[in-house]
Every structure is written in structure tokens, then in C-alpha cells.
Design a protein around this nucleic acid. Structure first.
Length: 435
RNA sequence: UCCCCGGUAGCUCAACGGGUAGAGCACCUGGCUGUUAACCAGGGGGUUGGGGGUUCGAAACCCUCCCGGGGAGCCA
């Protein structure tokens, strides 16, 4: 009888009898010697059945072991260079737990990858494939790195509400819900609430889903996505930039330290990730406009960047790029103006390398109540809805700032994926909410 | 909302300017005691997204609808 273990622990179990509980990932046969590749969530394992070395009743089960059949197998662990993972198990027991007929995703070959229209409706099964397995494990590591980074710096996690009474920023389209007869909206940002909590705890962050009802249909957009939003009392723009820079470096470090196998499955160019070190270049918006003009873009001061412009900015650097001091007109009402030039907002965006675009947006916030009331009027927002927010300036206002980092875009960049839809377990896309 | 591309076997794709719909993978049968995306031989599997039109003849050409993908705007 083998002792139940996970495949990831097998390298410490050489010579022992073990039991693996998993699913058939693939199988190969050469007649009287047969190979079953079993996955159990922790890894992949080649199991060997040789005629005569295992009872026929188990040996003959091979035919029924179709892709994704769930199985419990037992056998002796052995090191072998011929095994894909370096370790394999000689089986002496096989039990089918649940059969699986005609698994809809074929063995993945480079010339035979089903297109998204086929895979997305079976996302619940697609998640079992090797690439998706690797991506989800990296997502987990990035989420953990985010928590650890802030915890190490003394931040307190305080989550913002998801149901909100009104638009946070008043710009994008929100999902509307019925809140006992009143209108409520799914949050597009937890930031305003973090401005409240950081006044209680000094530095806080929230990490959760946010919602945009924009009819965006691009590789960089989802209707529901995750964002981490720290807010720091007494912080001004340079400190906000440093904190975000530190976060990105830490995330990449942790992924490189713990997810080499997964990056290899994804065929990610690791040397590019190894170059993500401080400091990131800091370039002003005005300088960027000059740079883009030199590159031949038809863009004028005061316009925001599109996807092509973002790629052009980042292509000169190997690290992310921090762009700061945007025209106030194209930024949110709560951002503080630059005292040296009131046309500018003390805002910053961080653009990921390799054309992955904006992964961070942040700013120093307006801390003067009269100026803030003026901005709310200028942006044509209902002041009543923001009275609580104005209170933060009435009772001991201080300079403060923060940013939001988009989790899915960060994952797409680190994993080297074309599309953010593979970075989230169950993507919510335009006209697609199943499964 | 607008622009572009696409829809042929369960999956990926062929099929010249209109002339009998094919291959690989998956599945089934048989073979092989070290396979590595195993391989070899054989087999089943199709209302070519729907409807209409042109034609002796349409997967192909025309119209229309449906579905999917990519991009713009907005943004993370």
C-alpha cells in the first residue's frame, strides 16, 4: 500500500511506495509497456505499467484511461532520466474514479490550439490544461507578493465596498444594480474609500474586483478585473512613484524565485524579466509628447496616449517607464495640480515593457477643500454624493497619494500573454459571461 | 456605437478563376517491453453557420441575417 502524496513531493520519496490521486493528462503505449501521464494539480508525473510487473486486471485498464479520467494509482518512485520530470512511478495498482469520454480539448500541439471562441465556453475545462495551470499558479504568486510587499511595509489591508451609491470618478460607464429600490453601482475603483482609511491607519490598501461597463473589446480589457489600490497619508508624488516601482520589482522577483517551471511552460523569455530592477526611468508627459513627435506620431500636447503610443514609449527601455505630470484636463477631478504649473496634474502612470501598456495609474490627491469643491463643479459632479469625501479635507487634511495596479495586465506582461482573458479564472468580457 | 477579419469533421486547417469535400490531431480496431506532441496499419465521423439568389452545376460568386475574433473610443 502506497502512502498518499502529491506529485510535487515525489523528489523526496525516491524508493518509496506512494499513492497519487489525479487525472489522466496523456498516455502512450508501446504494447507491453505503457505510460500514463497523471496530473494532480501539484505537477505532472509519468507512470509506467509493464506487462508482468503489474497484475493484468490493472494493466488492462489502460484502454479505459481516456484523457481526463480521474484515477488513483499506486507504485514505487524511481529516478529516471527518461521521464519528462526526472521522476517516475512503477505502478502496481490503478483505480478509475470517474470516467471521461471525449474530453473536448484535444492534446495540445502547436498547430492545433483551439481558438478562443471554442475555449472560452469551456473555460471550466480549459483551466486543466498545462498553460492555464501555469498561469493560475503565477497569478497566485503575484497576489501573494502584493500582500507580502505591503505587509512588509506596514500597510493595513482594508477593503473598499463593491456596491457604491454613485460614480467614484464620474467618468466611465458603471454596472447598475437595484439596491432595495434605489440605484447602486458596482465599484470601478476603491480609491476614494482608501483615502478615508489611510487617514485612520496611515497607509492602507484594498485588493479586489472592479467593474467597468465600457463596451471595450480589446486584448487589454475585461468587464471585471482585479486591482490593488494603496493609499498613503502624508505621501507626495515622488513617494507614490517609489512605492509603485518597489511593488513591481518585488512582484517580478517573487515570480522569478518561485515559478521557474511555470515560466518555462509558458515559454517566457526570462532574461527580460531579470532586467526589471530599480530605478525605472521617470519622464514627464511633456517630454513624452516631444519624443512621440520625433517618432513620427501625430499627437499634440493635451491628448492622451493610445495603445500604439504606449508601445512606442516603452520600447526604448527594458524596465517599466513612469510617465508623470499629465495635463489636468485629461485626468480625474481628485488629482492635485502641480504648484509649478496649474495646467498639470501630479499624476503618474507606469507603462509595462514589451508593449503591455499601462499597468499603474496614480497621483497625489487634492487636499485643499476649496480647490476640491471647485474641481467637483468643473467636472459637473453632484457635490452631495461627495460630502463624506470632502469631510476628509475638513478634519485634518494632509497631503496624500496612491495608485492602482491592474492585476490582469500585470500577469499578462509577466507571463508574456497576448490577451488578459487568460490571466483571470473566469473572464467577464463584452457579451460573454458564461461559464 | 464604428471599422476590419473570419465561420468547412469534436479541434486545427486544405480544397487554383464555380466541376465527385480532404489531411493532421481526438475517438474506435489491430500491432509494438522505454514511450517523450510516441509511432505504424485500418475505421467511423460532414445539411461546408442559417435563409434567399445567380448557374446545367456553389464550400467558393451576390444579398441578408446570426455567431465569433481583432481594433478604435474609454481605461487597469
Amino acid at each position: 500500500m502506497g502512502k498518499f502524496v502529491y506529485i510535487s513531493e515525489l523528489k523526496e520519496k525516491i524508493g518509496e511506495e506512494v499513492e497519487i490521486r489525479g487525472w489522466v493528462y496523456n498516455k502512450r503505449s508501446s504494447g507491453k509497456i505503457r505510460f500514463i501521464i497523471v496530473r494532480d494539480g501539484s505537477g505532472y508525473l509519468q507512470c509506467v505499467m509493464a506487462k508482468g510487473q503489474i497484475e493484468d486486471q490493472y494493466f488492462d485498464l489502460f484502454d479505459d484511461l481516456t484523457l481526463e479520467t480521474s484515477v488513483i494509482v499506486q507504485g514505487k518512485v524511481r529516478e529516471d532520466v527518461r521521464a519528462p520530470e526526472g521522476v517516475e512511478v512503477d505502478l502496481n495498482f490503478v483505480k478509475i474514479i470517474g470516467p471521461s469520454e471525449n474530453f473536448p480539448i484535444p492534446k495540445v500541439r502547436e498547430d492545433n490550439i483551439p481558438d478562443p471562441g471554442v475555449l472560452l465556453p469551456i473555460r471550466h475545462l480549459w483551466l486543466r490544461t498545462r498553460r492555464q495551470w501555469a498561469i493560475m499558479r503565477i497569478r497566485h504568486t503575484i497576489e501573494k507578493a502584493i500582500h507580502d510587499y505591503y505587509d512588509n511595509l506596514g500597510f493595513i489591508r482594508i477593503d473598499s465596498p463593491i456596491l457604491t451609491p454613485a460614480a467614484c470618478e464620474g467618468t466611465t460607464t458603471l454596472f447598475e444594480t437595484d439596491y432595495f429600490g434605489e440605484k447602486a453601482y458596482l465599484s470601478q475603483s476603491g480609491q476614494l474609500y482608501q483615502e478615508a482609511t489611510c487617514m485612520a491607519h496611515g497607509k492602507t490598501y484594498c485588493f479586489g474586483p472592479t467593474f467597468r461597463a465600457e463596451k471595450s473589446k480589446t486584448r487589454r480589457h475585461l468587464m471585471e478585473f482585479w486591482m490593488v489600490e494603496p493609499e498613503i497619508a502624508y505621501a507626495e508624488l515622488p513617494e507614490v512613484m517609489e512605492n509603485a516601482e518597489g511593488l513591481i520589482v518585488y512582484i517580478v522577483e517573487q515570480v522569478l524565485n518561485t515559478r521557474q517551471e511555470e515560466l518555462k511552460i509558458l515559454d517566457r523569455n526570462i532574461t527580460k524579466l531579470e532586467k526589471i530592477k530599480k530605478p525605472f526611468p521617470r519622464i514627464s508627459y511633456t517630454e513624452v509628447i516631444e519624443l512621440l513627435k520625433k517618432k513620427g506620431f501625430n499627437i499634440e500636447w493635451g491628448e492622451d496616449f493610445g495603445g500604439d503610443e504606449e508601445t512606442a514609449i516603452s520600447e526604448d527601455y527594458e524596465t517599466p517607464v513612469i510617465v508623470h505630470r499629465y495635463p489636468a484636463k485629461i485626468k480625474a477631478f481628485y488629482m492635485k495640480r502641480d504648484p509649478e504649473n496649474p495646467d498639470l496634474a501630479l499624476a503618474m502612470d507606469i507603462l509595462a515593457p514589451e508593449g503591455y501598456g499601462e499597468i499603474v495609474g496614480g497621483s497625489q490627491r487634492e487636499d485643499d477643500i476649496e480647490t476640491l469643491i471647485q474641481r467637483i463643479k468643473e467636472f459637473d459632479l453632484p457635490q452631495e454624493a461627495f460630502e463624506w469625501y470632502l469631510d476628509l479635507r475638513r478634519y485634518g487634511s494632509v497631503p496624500h497619494g496612491g495608485y492602482g495596479l491592474g492585476l490582469e495586465r500585470t500577469i499578462a506582461w509577466i507571463c508574456g500573454l497576448k490577451h488578459v482573458r487568460e490571466t483571470i479564472p473566469f473572464p467577464r468580457m463584452l457579451e460573454r459571461i458564461y461559464p
